[in-house]
Each structure stands twice: as C-alpha cells, then as structure tokens.
Design a protein around this nucleic acid. Structure first.
Length: 576
DNA sequence: GCCGTTTTCGGCCCGACTGTTTTCAGTCG
C-alpha cells in the first residue's frame, strides 16, 4: 500500500461518514489525515514514530492507517460500504447536492443512485421533502444534466489561452480597473475545472452585463452583484466565475479566490490567533473595528508575519510552517538557459536541427540538445548508430553556422523490455548527452520495470532519466515503479531526473519533485520533449510544475551555464 | 477525531448565495 492508496481509503471513509450523517468534524478529521498521508515526504512505513508523526493524525486515525498498512483494508470502511448503497457517494458530484440532502433523500425516499433520483424528481416526489421546493427540484435536474455532459477537469494547457483571452477582453472594458486570473489556474495545477477571474471595478453591474452578453456564453448560471458565472464554449465547454469587487478589496479578493482552500484555512487560523478575521474583503480587527486592505499580496502576508508565498506553493504542503529564510527561492522563467530534450525530422519531429536551434535562440536560450529516438522505437523511426554519426555532422555544421546558440548532440535512448539499453557504450560515449527512457513494455509488473530503470541508471553514460513514471494525465496511470528506489539510485549514481513539460505528462509531478529534492537531494532537468519549434513553449508548464515542487534554480541543470552544465554531465560519467 | 503554555473540554475558517423559511440550513469555493 503506498501513501496515495492509503489516503484514498481514508477519503472514502470520510465521504461515507458524512453521508451517514456522522459528526462532520469527525469526517473532516479523516480528510485531514488523508491529506497528511498524501503530502507526507516519506513513505509511511519509513516514519520513525509511526503515522502519529504527521500533523492532524492522532490515535484514532493512526490506528486506521496501521490497519490499512497491515491488512490492506479498513473494517469500518467495509462496514459502511455494505451498509450504504454503492451509488450514494456518486450523488455527491451533482452540483447543489451535499451530504445532508443526500442523507435525507436516501432515508425518506429510498434514493440510492442517479437513476432513481432522476425518476423521483420527474414524478415530483422530491419537492414534498422539508427544505425542497419546486426550484430546488429544477436545480438538481439541471445539476445532473451538467454533470453528465461535461468532463471533470481540463488540461491546464487548453484552459490557459481561453483565460488569457477573457482577461485581455475584460481589461479593455472602461469600467474595469484591474483583472487577474485566480483559482487553480493561477496556482498552475496540472488540470483545472473552471476559470476564476477577479475584477476590480466601481461599476459591477455594468461589467457583469458585458460578461453575460459575450458571444461565447452558452448559459448564464449566476448573475449577481458580486459574482457572475457563465458557461462558455471555445472549442470545449468550461465554466467561468467572475468576482466583481471594489478596487480597494482587489488584493484580499484575489488572495481569497486563488486558494487553495487548504492554504486559506491556515491563513484564517493564523489571523484568528491574532484576534482577526480574514475574508475576501480584508483582514478584520473586530476589537478596533478596523478592516485592513492591501495594495499587494506581499503586504498582506507581511501583516500576518509571513514571507510572500507564491501562488504555486499555496497548497498547505508545509509552506505555512517554514521560517522566512527556509522558504525556497523558486525557479523563475528567466533562470532557464536551454532545453535538453527535443526531436527533429531525423526521428518523429517536424523540423530540422537548424530550425530547432533558431527557435531556441529566439527564445533567448544559450544551448539545446537534440535527442532523437533510438532505433528500436520503430514507430518513431528511431536512429541507428550510423544515423547518429551523420546527424552529428549536421549538428556540427549548424554550430559552425549559428552564433549565440550551442547545439549538443544527444539521444533519447530506449530502455528495452529486457532491461538492456538500445545503444552499446561505444556509441554512447561519442554523444554529449544521453537520455534514457521507457517507451515499451510498461505493463510489466512494478518489480521488473523498476529493475529495468535501475539498470539504466547504473550505466555511466546515462545522464538523464526521462519522464520517470510514464503517466499521461487523464489517460494513463503511472508505471508501477518503486520511485523511492529510483530516487535512491539516482542519488548514488548522480543521475539527473527529468521533469518532462509536455502538458499531458508533467512527469515527475510536483509532489515527486518536492520529495526527490528534500529527501534525496537530487538534480533535475526540465525539458519540453518538443517535436516542433512551437512545442518549446511547453516550458512554461514545466517551470510552473517545478515551482509547485518547490525547486530552486540550483536544483535544475537547465539554469547552468554551458560550462557548468558540461562539468555536471562529465561528473556523472566519472562518478559511476 | 484532533488539538492546546491563555485550554485536556469545547471548539474546529469565512462569507455569499439560494431557496426555503419568517430567522435559517445547506452548499459552495
């Protein structure tokens, strides 16, 4: 049982307890414990004093965690699963329905799933219940329709341009003083559910009016004085929530709607210790009858004796408990000097070596590495050793021709299903950079896959392990690899782990990066794996993910000067 | 169920919005 699986069982238990109508604080205690387990830097069986070490885990939840670790099951959970109909938790995802309503529907009308809920609604049986009227009935039906129609979360890359267009358009509105994206979009989480915008304006109704009359709007969900929610269609459907606030409340509102919810809870608790209350309208001091507002978020954090915490770190993953000088100085876009993983027409890319070099130079890079696939990857027309030699000649010519950019000759070499590498050492030693990765046989069991990767890490010529878990967001689960063994091996061999910036991958992900850095002190390489010049822009997602993983410039070899980079690559070879 | 040098009991983040009420409960973010 890994941490993720343990936390998922605890969350499931919390949901069912709430549905059953148990003390919501108790359910919440299990949720907090689940979060603590998920965010734990170490696997649970490596904690010295057991689960109680984690914040929010006490006697009761620790007992539950132990039971899961020992037996793989949780008896209270099994009992509730037997007691409550299997479809009941699914009702929680209907907008407008919460645990209290579902509890009531189940007990009074015997509603057990979406099917018979719809039936009961259409027969008018629901509206008789206490607290349920005609409108609520309509809203629930509407909620069911909306839930069935739309996917849960969208990839960040698809939503970013839509949000930016909306933002630019609103910024031009004469009554808008300021507009910013908030929510998970501002925190740059890998997927987002909706678009949150915060607008500073003295004339909310005028702005609200122009929002609901935008051409993309397919549905107005909410049209109030301070909040407008619409569904828009731009290639796909997505909900947009716009908060309209007076200009002096803009910062506290932006902070509030940026979240995360968990971070905000910690902020409010901290304010409470000082006798204050925090809301989207400001920090309220009831004793002196004052409301503090701010001109920047830095100022707001300072008021609470906190250093500025970047949006990407606001997840209650320890950022609130660090002393100011212990917080990382997060990697910035300007720190990035070169992309070390990309493809050309030699394998499955669309551009030439020269095109990629020019595109990189335009972006201000000092160097790149061309890393086409190796010959076993037939679907991507991988290169033979002979192709590599001829490609090297082309790279030399480009280096000769172009000033201001250096092109390194590399490979993305397959780690074959039997654990061997696709090129012999005498081919590898001719290259400036060797990336190893798994592209086949990822349904092998965890042990075999882990062994394959460990074997690649042992090879003195392998500098970087690419997309270590192989996951595709919303499409393919990560390989069943033992990441801690891989991290340990990377530490011993000084091998660098990749953060692949492809929007479908983002692999390693934020939590893995944080753990690999804090527990193993590893170095990383953030690359786009671009197959065309435009794809170099995926780096934005990679840098955002690195920031979410608390990485600093010095943790990332792409921030090194070319000299330092070469030394670091050399060191790997010498060390192994 | 968790937590605490102002607390080992009595709290547990805050406000808007909606729909159902005639003073409030449930849901949401």
């Amino acid at each position: 049982m890994n941490n993720k699986q343990i936390s998922s069982l605890l969350n499931q238990l919390a949901d069912l307890m709430e549905l059953k109508g148990e003390n919501p604080f108790k359910a919440n205690a299990y949720r907090r414990a689940a979060r603590a387990v998920e965010n734990s830097r170490k696997p649970l069986d490596e904690l010295e004093k057991g689960p109680e070490e984690l914040p929010g885990v006490g006697k009761g939840t620790a007992q539950a965690i132990r039971e899961i670790m020992e037996t793989g099951r949780l008896e209270t959970l099994d009992r509730l699963l037997k007691e409550l109909p299997a479809g009941l938790p699914g009702l929680m995802s209907i907008p407008g329905l919460g645990p209290k309503s579902i509890h009531l529907l189940y007990h009074k009308l015997g509603i057990t799933d979406i099917g018979n809920l719809e039936e009961a609604l259409k027969q008018g049986r629901v509206r008789g219940l206490p607290g349920f009227g005609e409108k609520k009935e309509k809203n629930i039906l509407e909620g069911i329709r909306r839930m069935k129609e739309r996917p849960r979360r969208y990839l960040l890359i698809h939503v970013l341009p839509v949000a930016e267009t909306l933002k630019e358009r609103l910024a031009k509105h004469p009554d808008v003083e300021r507009v910013e994206a908030a929510g998970s979009l501002r925190r740059m989480t890998e997927t987002v559910k909706d678009i949150d915008l915060v607008v500073a304006t003295e004339k909310p109704s005028s702005v609200a009016e122009s929002i609901v009359s935008m051409p993309e709007v397919t549905e107005v969900i909410n049209h109030g004085e301070t909040k407008v929610s619409v569904m828009i269609h731009r290639g796909f459907d997505i909900q947009v929530d716009v908060r309209l606030v007076p200009p002096d409340r803009f910062i506290t509102a932006l902070h509030h709607f940026t979240g995360s919810k968990e971070h905000n809870v910690r902020i409010r608790q901290r304010a409470k210790e000082r006798g204050w209350r925090v809301s989207e309208y400001g920090i309220h001091d009831p004793e002196r009858g004052e409301v503090f507002t701010f001109s920047g978020e830095e100022e707001m954090y300072r008021k609470l004796d906190l250093p500025f915490i970047a949006p990407e770190m606001r997840e209650d993953r320890g950022e609130m408990d660090k002393k100011p000088d212990e917080l990382p100085r997060l990697l910035k876009t300007g720190d990035y000097r070169g992309d070390l993983h990309m493809h050309t027409r030699w394998s499955d890319g669309t551009a030439s070596v020269r095109d990629m070099a020019l595109a990189a130079r335009e972006r201000g890079y000092e160097y790149i590495a061309i890393t086409d696939h190796s010959h076993s990857l037939k679907v991507a027309s991988g290169l033979t050793p002979d192709d590599l030699k001829r490609q090297r000649e082309e790279i030399d010519a480009v280096n000769e021709e172009l000033d201001g950019i250096t092109v390194l000759a590399g490979t993305e070499m397959d780690i074959l299903p039997d654990g061997s590498l696709d090129f012999p050492d005498e081919v590898l030693e001719e290259l400036d950079l060797v990336i190893a990765s798994v592209h086949s046989g990822f349904r092998q069991d965890g042990k075999t896959l882990t062994r394959r990767i460990l074997n690649a890490l042992e090879n003195p010529h392998v500098h970087i392990l690419a997309h270590p878990t192989g996951r595709l967001i919303n499409r393919r689960d990560p390989y069943e690899v033992d990441l801690d063994r891989i991290f340990e091996a990377a530490r011993k061999t000084k091998t660098i782990l990749e953060l692949n910036s492809n929007p479908n991958r983002l692999d390693l992900k934020d939590l893995h990066l944080k753990r690999a850095k804090e527990e193993y002190g590893l170095h990383f390489s953030i690359n786009t794996d671009a197959h065309s010049p435009e794809m170099l822009d995926f780096i934005r997602l990679g840098i955002a993910t690195a920031r979410r993983g608390w990485l600093e410039a010095d943790d990332v070899i792409n921030t090194f000067s070319l000299d330092r980079l070469r030394k670091r690559l050399d060191e790997i070879k010498q060390h192994k």
